[in-house]
Simulated scan of single mutants.
Amino acid sequence: MVTKPILTGERIVLRPITVDDAAAMFASLSDEESMRLTGTQQTFSFEQVQQHCQRVSQADDRVDYAITLKDDPAYLGEVVLNEIDWQNRSASFRIALASETLFGKGYGTEATQLIVTFGFHTLRLHRIELEVYDFNPRAQHVYEKVGFVREGMRRDVLLWNGRYQSAIIMSILEDEYADKEMC
């Protein structure tokens, strides 16, 4: 079982997701802008969300964290390292804030920095990768600020409101992170 300690930043705390987060996670699925930015097209029942929370809390190939404020344990979103390949020391990254009202406050940047640090320092990963849709320049800027490098593009992977969108592939390697950390 992967150890999932609480990660504390300046303003936020990342704590492992539990089944108790299911209600807030389910409510976040009604935020249209969050769904657009993550490319979430399917719908989920509350029971499916509960099962997901239960499953990820016990998984060995991923770490799922709830984003909370230091002074308030309420779920603001999630940040995840998943598809962990222990042999090749790599993982995929994703983040979702629960509501558009949380955008632009720095929570996503701080959560990204905390989970990337955890990935390299604690999980001993070599590579963390992500995909971000081409219509999300704000997220692209955050990822670049943290040290992710653009690798390429998957063209026309998402059909949203009658238009195809592409996904930009980005990654950060442990030595790039170490160099960034030294600055």
Rank of each mutant, 00 (worst) to 15 (best):
V13H: 07
L123D: 02
K145H: 03
A27T: 05
S166I: 08
Q54L: 15
A59I: 11
D175N: 12
D61Y: 05
G77N: 03
F93V: 03
T122M: 11
D31R: 05
V79R: 09
S166V: 05
V2C: 10
D85P: 11
L125R: 00
Q42C: 13
W160P: 08
S166K: 03
E110W: 03
I17A: 08
D72L: 02
A98E: 06
T68C: 12
Q42W: 13
A74T: 13
Q41C: 00
Q140D: 05
F44M: 09
Q50F: 03
K180Y: 12
A91I: 02
L97G: 04
D179Q: 15
Y65S: 02
D31F: 09
M182A: 13
D72E: 12
L76Y: 10
V80L: 10
H141K: 11
I169G: 07
L125S: 04
D71M: 01
R154S: 14
E78Y: 09
T112A: 02
M25C: 04
R155N: 01
S90H: 10
M182S: 13
G106N: 01
F135D: 09
N161Q: 15
T8Y: 06
F135H: 10
T101F: 12
D60I: 07
V146E: 03
F103W: 12
M35F: 11
V56P: 01
Q41V: 09
R163P: 10
P16S: 09
L14Y: 13
Q41M: 14
L159A: 11
N82M: 13
A167V: 00
Y65E: 00
V157K: 06
P137N: 10
D175F: 13
